[in-house]
Design a protein around this nucleic acid. Structure first.
Length: 570
RNA sequence: CGGGGCGUAGCGCAGCCUGGUAGCGCGUCUGGUUCGGGACCAGAAGGUCCCGGGUUCAAAUCCCGGCGCCCCGACCA
């Protein structure tokens, strides 16, 4: 491809509404342009990257036994009413009416559509297993789209749905998909971790997220440095330490607690600083509202409580931090001074709290805390793992490992769904005994655009993008440094030879100065350049430049093709 | 949806407070000189100052209403 013919509108300055580096670079390097909030045009360079990622995904999915199809983007409301998601999904589901005033929606995901297909076409256990996938544009009317392709409203996603006759078979399929995903992201040249994850609104009982490691990642993940355990911080377990108990502990009251004045000191750090104690001598009391009424959740002052863990411990449907009004009603004090002593709502404590003695808690009275409190001073409904895991914690799965904290960008997630959708939509087949049995499902997504954005977050420098070779829009850029006849001819020859060798090359045939060409090369992130100038040409040499390191090598013109092939395969 | 901010040339911004000929840098176009790291000289094009209403002799500027966008929060494949 000739640079002069391509649409690559690079910008010297980044448009101001770009926050994260991948968004800035995609705009600056001429990969995307915004059409509306969260809606982007993919320019030719970006399109090539997306197609590269799609190809890898397609190959690995097919190799893992899945077949590609394409579901409609617009679906009738009836289908969504059947699973109840027409009401549950909320405003994220973009709804439209056709000319007959019938309700439709743009697909934000396709469980309904695929299940509808499968229930009408699959009859017998002999038809199973099936694994169907598509690569398609989806639309979710996000509350706040941001970060360019990372969280758009319109986005390209690969979604696969598997159908098995029983749980054992479905779990095998799930494992096979995890393997396929590992191959996919490895082939994309990305550093990633597969982590245990919660299942969110999709539902199901087992799930892994695939997180591309990048400091700018939105998700915190914890990974063991000794074994394979890794989990999203929302889910990461905390190992039971010595002395932790499942049930409420007995008394260990040593001395009386004292009420002290702590004017205006609410946050644990403020209280600790004011009383000149460490934050881990504090007990944080958080008031929540749940479908079972208000509850208190207690963690050590330097920890943070995970709502999902508390929800599981309580066994309730939903949970949210209480509003000021509820806090006042329950504790009879303004928020910031809640404590467990004298509370008459259920009190859930973190297992670690059982180890604490002589600690500081809120007094349930404005501007006051209690010092020297102990476990016997209040009732505990239940103790369990409700705090967020942090780096340095012992691994919950192996003996010797410690957890390390990483930041990640979620690019894919796999779910074991069970019969959640197939049950609701009566997707059944006849089993070997001739009985109707509900199909067991799994679903598996990969954000294609987000993978591209994550690749940039992970691979860039101050000059621009540094694509991993397998997903780069071009593998090599040929850069003639001036318009001399000899230089141009040599560049053309090289470009033609590359094409013949099956190497994807971009020829920068623009009449631009060397600096401009170098800068654009670095900005758009092509992994390698072959630089041709009058100086090198005199010695029949061309310069091979690596984007990542900036290192250059002079090689004889004749050996350029084998040299680049060798470099690329190493 | 709550809080904050922005909207002026393709991009980045100034001008607005204190009303009076719409500006700067980059980019673009023409000519020339240059040519291994975002050149220089000369000339030029390019504007619904987000939209609508109001105040005023006069509005980018003041007032009212709307729209769009960004950030923080809540939410989230």
């Amino acid at each position: 491809m000739r640079y002069s013919r391509m649409l690559i509108p690079t910008l010297r300055e980044a448009p101001k509404d770009a926050e994260v580096v991948s968004h800035q670079l995609m705009l600056r390097a001429g990969y995307i342009r915004k059409l509306a909030a969260g809606v982007y045009t993919y320019l030719p360079l970006c399109f090539r990257v997306l197609k590269k990622i799609e190809r890898i995904v397609r190959e690995e999915m097919t190799a893992a036994g899945a077949q590609e199809l394409l579901l409609p983007i617009v679906m009738p409301a009836e289908l969504w009413k059947e699973t109840g998601r027409w009401d549950y999904y909320g405003k994220e589901l973009l709804r439209i009416k056709d000319r007959h005033e019938r309700d439709f929606c743009f697909g934000p995901t396709h469980e309904e559509a695929i299940t509808d297909l499968v229930r009408s076409e699959l009859r017998s256990w002999r038809d199973l297993p099936k694994n169907l996938f598509q690569i398609q544009t989806k639309f979710r009317d996000e509350i706040r789209p941001r970060f360019g392709l990372m969280r758009g409203r319109e986005f390209i996603m690969k979604d696969a749905y598997s159908f098995d006759v029983d749980e054992a078979s479905a779990r095998k399929t799930y494992a096979r998909m995890v393997e396929a995903y590992e191959k996919i992201f490895s082939r994309c040249g990305l550093k990633f971790r597969a982590v245990e994850a919660g299942t969110g609104t999709i539902g199901g009982s087992l799930s892994h997220e695939f997180q591309v490691l990048a400091d700018s990642g939105e998700d915190a993940i914890l990974a063991c440095n000794a074994c394979k355990y890794a989990a999203n911080v929302e889910k990461a377990e905390v190992k039971k330490g010595p002395g932790t108990r499942d049930q409420g502990p007995g008394t260990q009251n040593k001395k009386e607690y004292h009420k002290v004045k702590t004017p205006g000191k609410k946050a644990a750090e403020e209280v600790a600083a004011f009383l000149k104690v460490k934050t881990d001598q504090l007990l944080k009391t958080l008031i929540f509202e749940t479908d079972q009424g208000p509850v208190a959740g207690l963690v050590r002052g330097d920890r943070s409580l995970k709502e999902a863990k508390l929800r599981d411990l309580i066994g309730c449907e939903w949970i949210r931090l209480a509003e000021e009004e509820t806090v006042r009603k329950v504790t009879k004090a303004p928020s910031g001074f809640a404590g467990p002593v004298g509370l008459n709502i259920p009190v859930y404590v973190d297992q670690e709290v059982a180890l604490m003695k002589d600690f500081v808690v809120g007094a349930n009275e404005g501007d006051h805390h209690l010092t020297g409190a102990n476990l016997g001073d209040f009732n505990i409904t239940k103790a369990g793992d409700i705090r967020a895991a942090v780096g340095g914690d012992l691994c919950p799965r192996c003996e010797k490992g410690k957890l390390e904290e990483h930041r990640g960008i979620e690019v894919g997630q796999v779910f074991y769904l069970g019969t959640k959708y197939s049950g609701a939509m009566k997707a059944q087949v006849l089993d070997k005994e001739g009985k109707q049995t509900t199909i067991v499902m799994g679903c598996y997504g990969i954000g294609i655009g987000r993978t591209a954005a994550a690749a940039i977050e992970q691979n860039h420098d101050e000059k621009g993008i540094i694509w991993p070779l397998p997903i780069a829009p071009f593998q090599v850029e040929v850069i003639p440094l001036n318009q001399d006849q000899a230089v141009l001819e040599a560049a053309e020859k090289l470009y033609a030879d590359l094409g013949e060798a099956g190497i994807e090359a971009l020829l920068d045939d623009r009449d631009e100065r060397a600096g401009v060409k170098f800068s654009d090369f670095e900005l758009i992130g092509i992994p390698y350049a072959l630089v041709i100038g009058a100086r090198g040409l005199k010695n029949k040499e061309v310069e091979l430049k690596e984007r990542k390191t900036g290192k250059t090598n002079n090689i004889p013109l004749k050996e350029a093709i084998p040299a680049i092939q060798k470099t690329m395969s190493s």
